[in-house]
Design a protein around this nucleic acid. Structure first.
Lengths: 193, 193, 193, 193
DNA sequence: GATGAATGAGCGTTCATTCAT
DNA sequence: TATGAATGAACGCTCATTCAT
């Protein structure tokens, strides 16, 4: 038995962990059961089928996504706002790594997950664009700043780093969170002032 | 019969196409055979096993990767150099979509492919950093430019856009090539002058 | 369902029976399942793989072989001792027909089984030679008897009859057990007195 | 190309050699073609099918078997006659090892070969029994000799040694030809005088 | 006379899922 | 609530055989 949690929780945790390494297909019900310390057939008492486990995680993802989007409230300081956005995005995707990765890897099989992943990105972009537009109108941002494209670039950049960190877990390729926020995001922000 | 090409070519094409949708595991030998219009067992006359098909594509990837890295020769104009780099990177990854995606999605099962994908990224980064450092020393680039981090940001950005375009093929999320080079890369470059 | 035994027992029995007819390779998992009255995949719940079934039988063979060798205790009466030896050898090999035959037929693919079959033969030979040597020393056997070669001949003879009886099951070629012990073994023994 | 012989001869030789190691089933047409140095499909130009190769060898076996039986002409000297019989049997079976082994191993699949192997044994037995009976009638052999059973024992013994030598090629178990004839057969014969 | 390309049947094995207990 | 036994569909792969050249 993996830990003291509910059987259902242990199954969800086992599934999440295994998906990181093996992907959805490679995460067999046998592996899940072994890691969770239960019988394979027990899975089907708690979830309709293998897909049902994923659905549960997707539901949590969607709830948290709303929360994260609501939590992201730019305050009008470009630097702090981009750092805040990057931080929330990174925290959220890390918390929901398995769903994020399935959305990335198996987007064709699970279009609804791919959609969910995309939507989050769009919402973050919109929040930033809206705020920056507002700031541009009030003169806080120079009118020469190309808000739309800069925001696109920013989102691509933080998405790129998250993908690198998840897809190649053991690699030196991605930039660790703190360093990324302090150096890279801050540097990016400096061009918008 | 899918088209007039060699059986081997048809198999490679079928494999590549299916991998985009279904991933490596989901691309069954039966599907490959059906798409290529041959009997399933014919696959094994042309390739040692299923992995052998992938190996063939990886070999081509590695050859082309060398070529692409050699082709990327910055001329000392920041804007043109970044555009050139982004264009070559994008062209190369598009040509080798299937291998790139397998390296991204199934990095755990195929660490050598994940490595190959990573290496390309590092090589591009190094070429840029080397050139920009040289330009900074000769005064063509202001000494205030944070070459290392700017290059990181640039590479994350073009990587992010490539991943988006491949992973969510039918989505409106990624920025189409021409537009990306003209608007986003150019915009990014403008901050380095 | 073939009979009331455990699924595992039914599988082992089915495998054993089929091996006599078809050999190891010819005994397909489908045939085994059909004869045992279970689904083919059920085999793999009970045994790691096809070889695992054989391993199980080989383990039993090895255990029984020790027992058989220990049970064979010549009492110093040549005739009775040869009959006893022949009887134990025949009973043992008959009980483990399938393993014996695989060791004989597929010795190249399963050298460890071939070894096991050989060893039994050597052990029986040694027990006889040791006893007869002891009897020769105590004068119970004439010193003119060529113990080593006579024993070789005896073992070849009983081995030959066992092989005939197993390999050509429906033939009239081999000599049935009782008759063999009463006539042939006894006749052979008569020359050693 | 294996040697200068006819394609057909090379195929037959390749088949014979492979059968010793791998048995009939394990001797794939691909292996045969590789060893013979021809294309796999060439086999089917020379033989109807895989079984056809075996048939060819069986035909030769049957012709030679007649020859061997005719060659075996006991002269009335028990010792020399048994040695002669053992020698011819051994030579013949060695020459036709592959067929002999298939008859032994795959007797169920190829009953006609099993028959052929059995018949040879019966013919040898009959020749010996007939001669010894004749000798008994003429007083050359003591009337106390149990001709039938002694002959059975003798045939089992030489059969046993041949099987050992073929089935466990690399083993020290069987008794090498010369030694077998000089020691074992001679010893056996000594009891009949 | 021989080849190379292709096939279809069948093999051992894995997997998500069901069912009786 | 959970288990252990069993299943059927599918998978990657091998094999003897066919056919056009």
């Amino acid at each position: 038995m993996a830990n003291n949690n509910t059987t259902e929780e242990r199954l969800l945790t086992a599934f999440s962990d295994l998906v990181l390494k093996y992907g959805y297909r490679g995460t067999t019900t046998k592996k899940i059961a072994d890691v969770a310390g239960v019988n394979e057939s027990t899975i089907f008492r708690h979830f309709k089928d293998k897909h049902g486990i994923l659905n549960e995680l997707v539901n949590k993802y969607l709830q948290d996504a709303d929360q994260a989007a609501n939590d992201f409230k730019p305050i009008g300081d470009i630097e702090l706002d981009l750092i805040q956005g990057a931080k929330i995005y990174e925290t959220f995707t890390t918390t929901h790594r398995s769903v994020f990765l399935i959305g990335l890897r198996e987007s064709y099989q699970f279009p609804e997950i791919a959609d969910a992943v995309r939507q989050l990105q769009q919402r973050f972009k919109k929040i930033l664009v809206d705020k920056f537009t507002e700031m541009a109108e009030s003169g806080e941002i120079s009118s020469t700043v190309d808000i739309k494209n800069e925001t696109d670039n920013f989102v691509l950049m933080i998405f790129g780093n998250v993908v690198l960190s998840f897809a190649y877990t053991d690699a030196e390729l991605y930039i660790p969170s703190n360093q990324f926020l302090e150096n890279n995001v801050r540097l990016f922000a400096s061009h918008l002032k």
